[in-house]
Design a binder for these strands. Structure first.
Length: 584
DNA sequence: GCCGTTTTCGGCCCGACTGTTTTCAGTCG
């Protein structure tokens, strides 16, 4: 039950209708419904009960009836009928590159292919090659597609794909003598994982650029090679394969192409609709009135011509950005970050000393850094007993005296114990400038337990922030079953910041939770949780995640200058002294 | 199925590449 389940059902309806050869606009409409429901912040059935669901764009009369049935009976007739008329394993075949609804339908009708195993058998027996429109190359492409999927080539984390794409862009620039190669697609939008990499460059000699691209040493296989478009596979540091597409466009069209290939697809459709209303046409070559180019050299000119201000790539998800452009002015900028408030040193499991971390932070232009090493319970991470934390505070004081241009704050990452108590006593926490409280154990506890643990920790006056609040590790483990809305309300009440952990394995809070927190007036702290000086560079992933959640400079505490940051931290501590008004 | 400043019907985003097609359909992004 719930939005995720409902979205899954509508997606499956779309898949099944597509295989049955239904009108593609009707199919699209169901996909749109699925996406809209998956993005909802509130439970669809609660919205329905409150009469608010019908006002949401993309949800019409028919869908409303289906959702009503779902909320009442837990099922949808259309979905059940479709499942009964089409083999269950068929929609999964659509995931295979090179296979679309038409071919899947053909295989089902002519060869009774109902699942992946049937398809493999049909390839092996040569039956597949006997179908009309199915030559040797098509069969080989499908076979390779199955292999690709089975190698586990799923989505690639942002922090793996971004440096890889930058490396490719630089290599292509050098190999083809180009001034500009841009990363587009979901990678430019800063999504936490990406399916493939899209690169874009401007040149009047497409074939030559595509040739240079396909010949890059990183390329392990060429999938397609045209005059303006090439598609290759490269190997990632995780050992997986990643598809990289390159498009070459004329310089006059560069902005239009960048917008087009940055997406999202849904955002682009909204832009095209705006163009159509003015009887214009928008494609990857520009914005046109008849044959006359109105805009296209840069993205800004296109947004301006459509009556919009520039929408940053991170927000191009059709989650209201077209209508909410007035809110864009205060959006957090990477340059706003003044420090990193959660990094580790050799006092626990970090690779670099306090001094080395501070110097690296200074090189990044920061004004401050908070050393937050693990507390005693994190034995596996060389967690510190209280005495060692006090020694560390002394050392930080000494190092601070020897350094100009950066201030080191004494912090700790204090474990939240199983009952919500903290791993250091209050009198020790009081000696710290900044306290991140995190859950590292019992992550599979039930919703009530993990939520209560977090809430209890927030009530402590010395807890400045909650670290990685949901505990997820992307592609590795699910988030805790925690009531994030309750955590957000408590954070607002107790003057506690919530962390956006910038490590690409975490990115937690995630974008939609950032938006909830911002709306509730909760302050965020974007920290790298760096375990080495090099990892301070992960800050950009956290900033982009926060931007995807509409975070403004004013809602992020580590954009404050040091004195203002100290004053902000003091509010919670002194509030308690003045009568415990933060106590529950 | 959804939607409306060309409105309650008739549209719905648009182009590149591939393969098997002899003029285009299917797939993809």
């Amino acid at each position: 039950m719930g939005n995720a389940d409902l979205a899954r059902i509508f997606n499956q309806v779309a898949d099944l209708l597509e295989i049955k050869g239904e009108d593609r606009f009707r199919v699209n409409s169901y996909r749109n419904v699925a996406r809209t429901i998956a993005d909802l912040e509130e439970d669809a059935c609660e919205l329905l009960a409150a009469g608010k669901l019908k006002d949401i764009r993309g949800i019409g009369k028919g869908t409303l009836e289906k959702i009503t049935q779902y909320c009442r009976e837990g099922r949808i007739d259309l979905h059940a009928e479709l499942l009964a008329s089409v083999p269950e394993g068929l929609p999964a075949l659509l995931k295979i590159p090179g296979l679309g609804p038409k071919k899947v339908q053909l295989m089902w009708e002519r060869l009774n292919v109902c699942c992946l195993e049937d398809l493999k058998a049909a390839i092996a027996s040569g039956a597949l090659a006997g179908l009309p429109g199915m030559g040797a190359k098509s069969v080989e492409r499908i076979r390779a597609g199955i292999e690709f999927l089975e190698r586990g080539a799923g989505r690639t984390p942002l922090g793996v794909a971004w440096p890889l794409a930058q490396g490719l862009a630089e290599a292509l620039k050098a190999a083809a003598g180009l001034d500009r190669v841009e990363i587009a697609g979901s990678l430019r939008r800063g999504r936490e994982t990406i399916g493939d990499v899209d690169l874009l460059c401007a040149s009047d000699d497409g074939p030559r650029v595509i040739e240079a691209f396909c010949d890059l040493p990183q390329v392990t296989r060429v999938l397609a090679r045209g005059d303006t478009k090439g598609s290759v596979l490269v190997r990632t540091e995780l050992g997986t394969e990643l598809q990289v597409d390159l498009r070459v466009v004329p310089p006059a069209s560069f902005g239009a192409a960048l917008a087009y290939f940055t997406g999202s697809k849904e955002h682009n459709i909204r832009l095209r609709e705006l163009a159509l209303r003015r009887k214009w046409r928008l494609n990857e070559y520009g914005l046109f009135e008849g044959d006359r180019l109105i805009a296209g050299q840069d993205e800004e000119s296109i947004y301006r011509a459509l009556g919009l201000c520039f929408i940053p790539p991170e927000l191009r998800e059709d989650r209201g950005e077209i209508e909410r452009t007035a809110e864009l002015a205060g959006l957090l900028d990477p340059a706003d970050i003044r420090g990193d408030l959660h990094v580790h040193s050799t006092y626990s499991d970090g690779a670099n000393t306090i001094r080395e971390m501070a110097l690296a932070a200074r090189r990044r232009g920061y004004a401050y850094i908070a050393i937050c090493d693990h507390s005693r319970s994190q034995v596996i991470a060389n967690g510190m007993p209280a005495e060692r934390l006090l020694e560390q505070i002394e050392e930080i004081r000494k190092v601070n005296r020897t350094l100009d241009g950066i201030t080191i704050l004494s912090g700790c990452e204090c474990d939240i114990l199983s009952d919500g108590r903290l791993d250091f006593p209050d009198e020790v926490l009081a000696r710290c400038d900044f306290v991140v409280a995190s859950i590292h154990s019992g992550l599979r506890g039930d919703r009530a337990t993990v939520t209560a643990r977090t809430l209890r920790a927030m009530q402590n006056p010395y807890v400045t922030a909650i670290g990685h609040p949901t505990g997820r590790k992307i592609g590795e483990r699910e988030a805790m079953d925690i009531d994030i809305e309750e955590v957000i309300r408590a954070a607002a009440r107790t003057h506690t910041a919530l962390e956006v952990n910038a490590s690409w394995q975490r990115l937690d809070l995630k974008d939609t939770h950032v938006e909830l927190a911002r709306a509730a007036g909760v302050r965020l702290t974007i920290n790298t949780d760096a375990h080495s000086a090099e990892q301070l560079g992960m800050m950009e992933y956290g900033v982009r995640t926060a931007r995807r959640g509409w975070a403004e400079k004013g809602s992020v505490v580590n954009t404050l200058e040091l004195d203002d940051l100290k004053a902000w931290i003091a509010v919670k501590r002194t509030g308690r002294q003045q009568g415990g008004r933060h106590e529950e």
